[in-house]
Simulated scan of single mutants.
Amino acid sequence: MFSAATSRRSRLAYSTLALLLAGAAGAINATSFFAFGQHITHMTGHVTAVGEAVASGQWGDALTAGQMVFAFVVGAVTATALLDASRHRTRGRHAAALLVEVVTLGGVGLWVHEHPDANESTLMWGLAFAMGLQNALVTRVSGAVVRTTHLTGVLTDIGIQLVRMVVWVRDGARERGLRGIWHKVLDLPSAEQFERTRLHLGLALAFLTGSILGTGLYLRYGASAMALPCVVLVVVMALDISPAGSRAPAASL
């Protein structure tokens, strides 16, 4: 997942960033569903909706779904431009993109809190924009390995890696019998070749945890639940701006 030149501290920083953002995305997705009746963090369904609407001649519905996809792409473009503009900084390289996401999510949450019956399409555009921005940010940081706004690829990789883990443990049995199996199992939590697997398992759990917390907070506090992902993003910003953030190699961007 990471190059050999990437320090352990940098790998930990990237993993922490990805896990926190996956949790935020899960909370946003859950909150969006309860507020607007749509999951917002992944675009597959919206692209499908465009195709269905075009095929059935429902041009208004096609335009609505297409606008969601467009907003997501604009978010990705925005994040990439901000990252390129800040790539020479020693710290805070992600802060500008994260700040835009916080302001966008906070604005949507505040508007829905003040207008609880509002179901304006522009609010969903804002959420789609924020998720496109976040997805592009993590994609650039991880070298196109990690996505935090959807889990299809993550779950696929987990399935593939689980088989590789079983094969790895089985090879231990061939080498040293039961003792070999035992040593291989003990080595699983630290084996370098399964670092990506552990991260993907963490991403799935973080997204699920965010979904649970987002749902619980929305059912109890309404649109104020959007404060949760905003707080998480502010924490990520603080980590990025801190002296520790300067240790991450700029080449990842």
Results as ranks from 00 to 15, higher is better:
A227C: 06
T197Y: 09
G216V: 10
T152P: 03
L213S: 11
T209I: 12
V108M: 07
L127D: 00
G202T: 00
S190F: 09
L178R: 15
E175R: 14
L186M: 13
R176Q: 15
R196P: 02
L105R: 00
L123M: 14
D171Q: 14
R170G: 08
W182F: 11
P116N: 11
V141E: 09
T156I: 15
F129G: 01
F129M: 10
L178A: 15
G180S: 07
L123R: 01
T104I: 08
H150N: 09
L205M: 12
A144E: 11
G214H: 04
R147C: 07
P116F: 09
T197C: 12
W182R: 14
G132Q: 06
W111H: 10
G126P: 07
E175A: 15
A225W: 01
V154E: 07
G172F: 02
V108I: 14
P229D: 03
S121K: 11
R179P: 02
V145A: 13
G214K: 07
P189M: 00
A144S: 14
L162H: 02
G107V: 13
P189T: 00
L228A: 14
T156A: 12
R174T: 05
P229A: 06
V145D: 06
V163G: 07
T139S: 15
V112M: 08
R196L: 12
D171P: 05
H150K: 12
H113E: 08
M165L: 13
T148Q: 03
L201Q: 03
F194I: 03
R198S: 02
I212R: 04
E195P: 01
V103M: 10
D187W: 01
V103F: 08
C230K: 08
R196V: 06
G126D: 04
A191F: 05
